[in-house]
Design a protein around this nucleic acid. Structure first.
Ligand code: MN
Ligand code: MN
Ligand code: ZN
Ligand code: ZN
Lengths: 134, 134
DNA sequence: TATTAAATTGTAATAATTACAAACTTGTAA
DNA sequence: TTACAAGTTTGTAATTATTACAATTTAATA
């Protein structure tokens, strides 16, 4: 199970796995549709009625800082979260709002003007209309 | 001057060029550092003291809808605006916060999983540390 | 000029995120 | 086990970016 490796990553970084954090990670692993904070909060709240939205924010912030989760900012209105940190692109359908993954070969991208820039993070996203909405 | 072509574009789309809109376009042309709404508003207010921030929002919204200006959402905290609508990438320095342009060849990017997706917009951005901050 | 439409303005409302302090939980060492 | 410190969660308040809206002003048209 992929959770074992996640747990190891957490331990390595001295983040202990509270019940809330476990549930948030489980949720992200099971819902790789790039959910918003609100979706994560609302859904997990069903099983943890005392959950605070602040905890969701705190946990996600920590996971992002540690590089275990990635934020997707395509619209200014909503941050989305992705537990898949492999290089891949995102396609946002302007009709249904869904964000789809697609595979990219980042090394194939020819770019100039970045000599002496230290790159930590690469993002590619497209916008348009998905097949279902076409 | 590039403004003549911009004016034509506006006329073509039945957007008339008010004084406020002219000043906002001029500002974007002269400040291609990807300014925020607040920067645009604060600077132009010096020459138009009655300017309303709502007007800045309205104008930018319209210009983006018409494809004359592009929004950059790298951080969830700030939308930035770019009058350069040519294909190019953005590099955000995590230290100084500046956003740098770099050239890309979008056609060189190998990607899979987008059959039957209609693509309107392609964005590429990197994050890291710029040479000055290194 | 008179009428209509478009644009601007200021204020109020909305919504996402962060700050903060109190309460609770966990880990550790005597 | 107990006691203390450190870490975590929670709820509320504050902050901030953006949008809604109605009144006023300006521009376009006949
Ligand atoms: Mn993804
Ligand atoms: Mn640019
Ligand atoms: Zn769709
Ligand atoms: Zn820098």
């Amino acid at each position: 199970m992929m959770f074992e490796s996640l747990k190891k990553e957490l331990k390595k970084r001295n983040i202990n796995l509270s019940y809330q954090r476990l549930k948030i990670l489980e949720y992200l692993a099971q819902n790789q549709c790039h959910p918003t904070v609100d979706q994560i909060y609302t859904d997990i709240q069903k099983s943890i009625p005392t959950l605070s939205k602040t905890t969701v924010y705190n946990t996600l912030k920590k996971l992002v800082e540690e590089g275990l989760v990635r934020v997707i900012n395509i619209e200014d209105t909503e941050s989305r979260y992705d537990i898949n940190i492999e290089d891949h692109g995102h396609f946002k359908c302007e009709n249904c709002g869904n964000i789809f993954d697609f595979s990219i070969n980042m090394d194939s991208l020819v770019c100039n003007g970045l000599d002496n820039f230290r790159i930590f993070d690469r993002h590619v996203y497209f916008k348009g209309i998905c097949p279902q909405c076409s």
